[in-house]
Amino acid sequence: MEQGEILTLEDGEKYVVVSMVTIGSSQYLYLANRKDYKKYLICEYYDDEVEEVDNPDLLETLLVKFNEDLKESLPKIIEKYF
């Protein structure tokens, strides 16, 4: 999985992989809908599926980690795409 990769889910909606973090053996993704970025998914990725994270505590942990990851990658994104 790579940042910026576009995933099509079974309902036909396309999501952009905005950020990824790994905790232990689990990989978590922050996906933004390609058409409507206000639609998003914070989920765990395994095999060919993603499962939405519904635990508020884990969500909070993940958001902090996604935030750190995104702050780190911002200059690279700008440099790469503009």
């Binding site: 940042q3 905005v18 922050y30 390609r34 970025y37 702050k71 994104i77």
Partner: peptide, 18 residues
């Protein structure tokens, strides 16, 4: 569109999702 989503998110925790 995807690029903008990515940039918003990357611009320091101001994405809607977060």
């Amino acid at each position: 569109k995807a690029l903008v989503s990515l940039c918003i998110a990357a611009a320091g925790s101001i994405s809607t999702a977060v």
